[in-house]
């Protein structure tokens, strides 16, 4: 197995790894990438840490990130309107899911962008963006963080209260992190390049998802809603059928009420 270094990563020749920083240990790849983004680093800047000492998820939640995982953040400078930025997380989820399938892990997507195997989280995605609040509202940058539980045991993650799994646990062996990174970058690049054709991205999302058709509970704006996830809107919002009628969700923490995950349709079982 090749170690992750600026040289080995550079040899992948990915457009998402034009500038590469690799750290033995770093507080948070996301924070470092955000610093670089604000300082004007180009599209395709990649920050990798073998260990994150202060890994953070959404809303600052701690995310265990010991050695053996793939902890990365990418700086993107997409050339589309800021109003399309909310497509990034689902688009990234499709790319990450395809990369996992490529290495033999049959992951599915929980709306909007969590990657699960057997109902347990294997990978988290965190996206942040900065907008220039000017006429036209272009997106200045997006920072995409991907935390992949790779060559680890689930107990290494130190999040006993959450349902987590790892690539090692699912495959029964470790994977080459450079090969995993290659699959990840090439699938992310392909998906992000067709973000304007969001219908096609969402079609793949549907084939990979485990949320549609499920009963879910969601907390948002201080209330709890329960219902059945029936469909997506054209922009990827989740339509939830509840006793009060159909509710459109743009955000919120969803919880599947029935255990287990499945891919969206039977044709997905042979690939995506």
């Amino acid at each position: 197995m090749k170690a992750l270094s600026p040289e080995t990563i550079g040899s992948l020749k990915s457009p998402l790894a034009c500038v590469v920083e690799v750290y033995e240990a770093l507080g948070s790849t996301q924070e470092r990438a955000r610093e670089l983004a604000r300082a004007g680093t180009p599209h395709g800047t990649l920050v990798v840490a073998r260990v994150q000492t202060g890994g953070r998820g959404r809303l600052g939640r701690p995310w265990g990130s010991p050695e053996g995982g793939l902890w990365i953040s990418l700086v993107l400078r997409p050339e589309f309107r800021a109003s399309l930025a909310s497509r990034i997380t689902q688009t990234a989820a499709v790319g990450v899911a395809k990369a996992l399938w490529e290495i033999g892990v049959e992951a599915s997507i929980k709306w909007p962008n969590d990657l699960l195997v057997g109902g347990k989280k294997i990978c988290g995605i965190l996206a942040e963006s900065g907008t220039q609040n000017i006429a036209g509202r272009s997106l200045d940058y997006a920072v995409l963080g991907v935390g992949m539980n790779a060559n680890l045991d689930p107990s290494d993650l130190g999040v006993a209260d959450r349902k987590v799994t790892t690539i090692r646990f699912e495959l029964g062996h470790d994977v080459d992190l450079l090969e995993l990174l290659r699959a990840l970058l090439s699938n992310l690049d392909a998906e992000l390049n067709r973000i304007e054709d969001f219908g096609a991205v969402l079609e793949d999302w549907r084939n990979l998802n485990c949320t549609l058709g499920e009963r879910v509970r969601v907390r948002r704006f201080g209330e709890t809603l329960e219902g059945r996830a029936v469909d997506l809107t054209r922009e990827g919002a989740l339509l939830l059928a509840t006793h009060r009628g159909t509710v459109e969700l743009f955000e919120g923490e969803i919880e599947h009420l029935r255990q287990g995950d499945r891919t969206g349709d039977s044709s997905a079982s042979g690939g995506y």
Binding site: R87, E128, F221
Partner: peptide, 30 residues
Amino acid sequence: EAMKLMNEIVADVSGEVVEVLAENASGVEY
């Protein structure tokens, strides 16, 4: 936050904050 994308909104001019028009953790429109 939209679809778990945390969108940082920055001041496009320098000046004084006169009013905050939305409630924390509430939904806002385009």
